[in-house]
């Protein structure tokens, strides 16, 4: 900005008087300074018309396209940035039918203390509350018999998605669910006694129920919430209980992983 200044000053001094009328000289095409003084007023209406008439649209169009592309790239970047950082809770909220139990601020549901023995839960299947010190192994484990709520809720606290289905659901439909679970950590599934729908998927504080195993909302729920729902970032799904059947009072941290609970052993 500083360099043009000094240049302008001398030029103003030289010809300042002849072009004292202000704007007109600025429009004179190709005028040398001496000439500019002579015919200022006469030429000025003529030349602007020629200039605007001779506007070259080619470069303007090219520049326009370039600007459009640049704006598009920037716009997409902003969109991707906003979209990419969308909260998982917002994604869950977009799924019709998902129940948000975290929003209820219910002290019993939010209770994260460890308690031995059988516990009662507010929802069926449970989505939160106090739980057994031992979590259910949730390394993509597919349990073929009902498992203890007390262990499963602890897995929800660790960020796992628990896929439950009505006990007695047809094998081919169970197989559809199994495909969504096996081989994936922070996933586990089991039949659930007395389930009011064919399928219920839950993480800590959120639940979605449906009768259709092919319901795309199941996948959307898993995609949005798996691991992100964790109340303890970094908590693992391994080293958990791998047996099925009800919880026993003797079950506690680690020591009983393999042998404590009675009932049929895991099918996985």
């Amino acid at each position: 900005m500083s360099t043009p200044g000094p240049e302008r000053v001398p030029s103003t001094v030289k010809v300042g008087k002849t072009t004292g009328q202000g704007k007109p000289p600025a429009k004179k095409a190709g005028a040398n300074r001496p000439n500019a003084g002579k015919g200022g007023k006469g030429r000025k209406p003529v030349t602007p018309v020629k200039v605007s008439g001779g506007r070259n649209w080619g470069p303007i169009a090219v520049a326009g396209v370039v600007v459009l592309i640049a704006a598009g790239i920037i716009g997409y970047g902003v969109y991707a940035s906003v979209q990419g950082s969308r909260a998982w809770t917002d994604k869950l909220a977009d799924i019709k039918g998902v129940v948000n139990y975290r929003a209820q601020k219910n002290a019993t549901l939010d209770d994260r203390t460890h308690k031995d023995g059988a516990l009662t839960y507010l929802t069926s299947p449970p989505v939160g509350g106090s739980h057994n010190p031992t979590w259910q192994n949730c390394m993509g484990d597919v349990y073929t018999e009902p498992i203890a709520n007390e262990h499963a809720v602890h897995s929800l606290e660790h960020g796992a998605v628990w896929v439950t289905y009505k006990q007695g659901l047809a094998a081919d439909q169970v197989a559809v669910l199994q495909k969504k679970v096996e081989g994936k950590d922070y996933m586990f599934m089991s039949p659930y006694t007395g389930l009011d729908k064919n399928v219920s998927v839950q993480v800590w504080g959120y639940q979605y129920k449906t009768d259709d195993v092919n319901d795309s909302s199941i996948d959307a729920f898993i995609s949005a919430a798996r691991l992100k729902a964790s109340m303890e970032p970094g908590a693992a799904c391994s080293s958990g209980n791998t047996t099925t059947g009800p919880v026993t009072a003797a079950t506690s941290n680690g020591a009983s992983m393999d042998t404590a609970t009675p009932g049929s052993s895991s099918g996985s």
């Binding site: 240049e7 302008r8 000053v9 030029s11 103003t12 010809v15 300042g16 072009t19 004292g20 009328q21 202000g22 704007k23 000289p25 600025a26 429009k27 004179k28 095409a29 190709g30 005028a31 300074r33 500019a36 030349t47 020629k50 200039v51 001779g54 070259n56």
Partner: peptide
């Protein structure tokens, strides 16, 4: 022609009253 106009435009602008420019 066009470039002529613009250059003289730029050159001429300072010739007028400096303050508004």
């Amino acid at each position: 022609m066009i470039s002529d106009v613009t250059s003289s435009d730029a050159g001429a602008a300072p010739e007028e009253a400096p303050a508004p420019s």
